[in-house]
Design a binder for these strands. Structure first.
Length: 240
DNA sequence: CGTTTGCATGGCTGG
DNA sequence: CAGCCATGCAAACGT
């Protein structure tokens, strides 16, 4: 995929550079991640870091961790402010990832720059985290099953069985247009985030790794982060 | 004929 | 016992 290739070069972190320290063109030299690791709480895989969230009726179960917020995201509904009315027509290859190349803006006013910096430095409010399963990491699927409670609480409401396109930015500043939908199941719905194939390749998802979703404080935009399985920095290269 | 998409099933956990 | 979710699978597609 040309897109992926394009990324490969944008992301120097391939061979031996720590992904977390990679600075992409958009980063402006500022690491947007406050401290992902500290967010994990030290919840055991099976236990859940029960949150302190007041309004949120959340309680994770299984290998996922929901992070409660103190005041910024009391009500999960708050983040449902921006409604994407994409209609959901062409879902097929509509998934795309676009680099936010602000540096290309010929007429970037100082105001805009300030805004960009503001966003870059804005703190990320952890929403929830999920440990990847084999299915999630499977390239053929290119989709991530989202914990129901988290999906309903933090993702934009889905209009109809179709689902919605949602803009998500990764912690490197890349923008992704993902498709958020659900499958009707015998017992309710199963929420899924599709269109992740390229991101999966880029980050080299593996079962056991974890994905965290944040809400950027500045503009409320969804941001996704990725962490390799339990702090193992000496095993970052491709196996075979 | 290899993929992708959507769904149904079954294991498992919490209530 | 109810519901969640990981996974298997068949229909639908694309090459």
């Amino acid at each position: 995929s040309p897109e992926v290739m394009q990324h490969a070069k944008d992301v120097p972190g391939g061979p031996s550079i720590d992904p977390k320290r990679v600075i992409t063109g958009i980063n402006l030299g500022v690491d947007p991640i406050p401290s992902p690791d500290s967010v994990v709480c030290n919840a055991s895989p099976n236990k859940v870091a029960t949150l302190t969230t007041p309004g949120a009726v959340l309680q994770a179960q299984s290998p996922l961790v929901e992070i409660g917020e103190e005041s910024s995201v009391n009500s999960p509904d708050e983040i449902n402010t921006s409604h994407h009315k994409s209609g959901g027509k062409h879902r097929k290859n509509a998934y795309k990832q676009t680099q936010v190349q602000s540096r290309y803006s010929p007429k970037t006013s100082s105001e805009e720059l300030k805004e960009i910096c503001r966003l870059s430095q804005s703190s990320l409010i952890p929403l929830f985290e999920k440990e990847l399963t084999a299915s999630d990491a499977d390239l053929r699927n290119g989709r991530l099953v989202l914990p129901k409670r988290c999906a309903e609480a933090y993702f934009p409401k889905i209009s109809g069985q179709q689902g919605n396109f949602i803009a998500v930015q990764d912690t490197k500043g890349n923008d992704w247009e993902l498709y958020y939908r659900y499958w009707s199941n015998t017992n309710g719905k199963m929420y899924v985030l599709e269109g992740l194939k390229d991101y999966i390749i880029l980050m080299q998802w593996k079962a056991g790794d974890r994905v965290t979703f944040y809400k950027r404080e500045a503009d409320g935009k969804l941001v996704m982060g990725f962490k390799k399985y339990q702090a193992a920095k000496s095993d970052q290269k491709s196996s075979t």
